[in-house]
């Protein structure tokens, strides 16, 4: 009997932290093969490269915990970069330019949230509305330059700084920690979980579901536009298709981290880990000279393995709870 429980506990530990074990094993193996991998400089590089997707994924986590996906974030990343660079080129103060970009993201988020909560949409409707918004916003990003790169006339200053050095990493970690505290320690965060796990019950308990849902999308939109600003700041130019596919990368980070796609359960720290796992894996595979296309195959399998492990873990827990009750 005792042996059974011990084995189960070990299995449980491995399943719930499987991703962490995968990343540790990956780092050790790659580090042993290629000493350049385990240098401080390389690891900082990996984090910097993945901070942008990571910030988008933080907003996506709120939407997913709240019960639905936000597919528009990739286009918001592109659009906000275009807006920021255009404003700076027009001679606007750099802080104001960033504010314009964030306002545009906020606007898209509020539009998403309002449309979805207006029709009381479930994840299906949310999927289509945010997909439509993705197409609309992507075309808005294309209008000003007809799809071409826009070189920014950016002088040294705040805008140019935030995309470089330790700034993106610091901002990413700060945002993740702040959002995690809001999620776990405030009324707003707990309501988000409630709405995500059972919208009707939340409504009947007196939670004002609609404004809350609007706010999830608004947060997601603002974070996506901030990520777009960071991306532009790093290269001091804007590419109107820079964010294509970001929504899928963000969802992958959330899922690999272990947040349930059914809503109502999850954490930002898990998303942070998910984003880092995907980033470290990509970098390790790069260093091992595996092409980007092979990496896609590995990434796809990683997503499936992560979700399968999460499901398995849940089933074992449920079985153990039933066992204890008997």
């Amino acid at each position: 009997m005792r042996k059974y429980i011990n084995r189960d506990a070990l299995l449980n530990l491995m399943l719930s932290n499987g991703i962490l074990l995968v990343i540790v094993a990956l780092i050790l193996v790659t580090g042993a093969i290629e000493p350049n991998f385990l240098t401080w400089r390389n690891l900082v590089n990996v984090l910097r490269q993945n901070a942008v997707v990571g910030i988008v994924a933080c907003g996506m986590t709120y939407c997913i915990i709240g019960g639905a996906y936000d597919l528009s974030v990739g286009s918001v990343v592109s659009m906000s970069g275009v807006i920021a660079i255009l404003s700076i080129n027009a001679g606007v103060n750099e802080f104001l330019a960033i504010a314009y970009a964030l306002l545009a993201g906020l606007g898209v988020g509020i539009a998403n949230g309002s449309l979805i909560s207006l029709i009381n949409g479930r994840s299906g409707e949310a999927f289509i509305v945010t997909y439509g918004m993705q197409v609309v916003v992507a075309s808005i990003a294309l209008f000003p330059s007809n799809g071409l790169f826009i070189a920014g006339r950016v002088s040294e200053g705040f805008f140019k700084t935030i995309g470089r050095g330790y700034w993106p990493i610091g901002l990413f970690l700060a945002i993740a920690v702040a959002l995690e505290i809001i999620l776990q320690r405030t009324r707003f965060g707990r309501k988000m979980c409630f709405i995500g796990s059972n919208m009707d019950a939340a409504k009947m308990s007196g939670i004002r579901v609609k404004p809350h849902r609007v706010s999830f999308y608004a947060i997601s939109g603002v974070l996506a536009s901030f990520a777009g600003v960071l991306l532009c700041s790093r290269v001091t130019s804007s590419n109107p298709t820079a964010g294509v596919g970001f929504e899928m990368d963000a969802i992958a980070a959330v899922v690999v981290g272990g947040t349930s796609t059914n809503g109502g359960r999850g954490s930002i720290i898990r998303t942070l880990i998910g984003a880092i796992v995907i980033g470290v894996m990509g970098n390790a595979l790069n260093i091992l000279d595996i092409t980007a296309y092979h990496q896609q195959i590995v990434k796809g399998m990683l997503i499936i393995a992560a979700v399968a492990m999460d499901l398995w873990n849940k089933r074992i827990r449920a079985r153990r709870m039933a066992h204890e009750r008997v």
Binding site: T261, Q295, Q296, V298, I304
Partner: peptide, 14 residues
Amino acid sequence: FVATLGTMTAIKGL
């Protein structure tokens, strides 16, 4: 959604 997101990425890579 996630299962087919995974296979989508993998098959495209293939």
